[in-house]
């Protein structure tokens, strides 16, 4: 991993579902290479047998009673939707005609 990191910006854009202009692709690729080179320092630490930390303090299985509460109303849920009709979100067609 000591060689220059390999950035396939088109692949990353697809994974992240973010459309990027060609200027952005060029700028980000260069910046990400610099940032990833900086990240290489973490390889200097011996982490053999060290457990990863996902949270700052350990919490296990936080449970509460399964009591139903009033959810948002349909009106509230749709209030900020970019498009809705008949109480439902409108989205582009995702299934082809038969």
């Amino acid at each position: 991993m000591s060689q220059q990191p390999d950035i396939d910006i088109d692949y990353l854009s697809r994974l992240a579902r973010i459309g990027l202009s060609s200027e952005e692709k060029e700028a980000f690729s260069g910046q990400l290479v610099k940032i990833l080179e900086y990240f290489e320092q973490i390889r200097a630490v011996d982490v053999t047998g060290v457990a990863p930390t996902a949270h700052a303090f350990p919490l296990h299985n936080v449970l509460r009673d399964d009591v139903p509460e009033a959810p948002l109303t349909r009106e509230q849920a749709l209030r900020c939707a970019p498009a809705h009709r008949d109480g439902q979100f409108v989205v582009p067609k995702v299934v082809e005609d038969a």
């Binding site: 991993m1 950035i7 910006i9 692949y11 990353l12 854009s13 994974l15 992240a16 973010i18 990027l20 980000f28 990400l32 940032i35 990833l36 990240f39 973490i42 390889r43 630490v45 982490v47 060290v50 457990a51 990863p52 930390t53 996902a54």
Partner: peptide, 26 residues
């Protein structure tokens, strides 16, 4: 988002994300 996607992507996860979490423990 692109950077986060990279460090989580297949083939890089252990080298970046998992290792960062281990150094976080340190």
């Amino acid at each position: 988002i692109i950077l986060g996607t990279y460090v989580l992507s297949s083939g890089y996860y252990d080298a970046y994300y998992k290792r960062a979490q281990q150094v976080r423990t340190v």
